[in-house]
Structures are given as C-alpha cells and as structure tokens.
Design a protein around this nucleic acid. Structure first.
Length: 104
DNA sequence: GCCATGACGGAGC
DNA sequence: TGCTCCGCCATGG
C-alpha cells in the first residue's frame, strides 16, 4: 500500500457533481502538505482510468493540467461542466459551492 | 547517487 | 488581484 494508492482511494470517493482540491486530497490520504504528490499521482493516471481525476483541482479553484499533455485540461473542464459545475468567465470555479467534504 | 523538474499551497510584495 | 519565492518529495536523466 503506497501513498499513491491512498490518494487514488480518496479521489474515487468524490461523488458526482462535487470537486476537491489537491491539498484536501493529500490531507485525507494522510499526506498533509504534500499536495504536489497528489498532482504527481494524478499526472501518472491515464485519462481513461476509472479514477475521477477530473474532480480534483487546485486551491485557486482553477483547472490545471500540463500543457504538454494532449488537451487533458480541456477534457477535465468538459467533464466538470457535464456534471453541472459552472465556470466563471475567467475559467475558475466557486469552490464553496462544489467542494466535497467527507462528512457529506 | 546527484540534479532538475513538476496536475500544488501558502506567505510575502 | 496577480506574480514570485520557498518548502515538500517522487520521478527521470
């Protein structure tokens, strides 16, 4: 059981229509302050994976993504919009409205 | 084994 | 509000 396995496990718990941040995922996975590892873990996940990686964004409420990857960032935004999540004109999300909490 | 890098976060300006 | 710098640590050359 590696840290990545815990990260994936947490991401899989995110319900439909909800999102969370890298830092929160890291904390729930038992890796407080290791947000970068979460990003790195999701970076290694295939876009067609069964893991809802698209529901994880940064603390700024903005969709990230490596420019080098083939439009994975666009794919993420599309999937989020498909789940009813609204984006601001600047491409940002109002976190408090969609942020997932384990208590829910 | 060392060095540079990166889907981040937070503090400082 | 937006940009820069630093800390964190796994991965790849």
């Amino acid at each position: 059981m590696s840290n990545y396995d815990r990260i994936y496990a947490v991401v899989c718990q995110i319900p439909y229509g909800k999102i969370t941040t890298y830092g929160l995922v890291a904390e729930l996975a038992g890796l407080p302050g290791r947000a970068r590892l979460v990003g790195y873990a999701l970076y290694r996940v295939a876009p067609d994976s069964d893991i809802p990686w698209h529901r994880v964004i940064n603390a700024k409420g903005q969709v990230s993504g490596s420019p080098v990857r083939h439009g994975s960032d666009h794919l993420q935004r599309s999937r989020l919009e498909a789940e009813g999540i609204q984006f601001d004109p600047q491409g940002r999300i109002h976190l408090p409205d969609y942020l997932w909490l384990p208590e829910d």
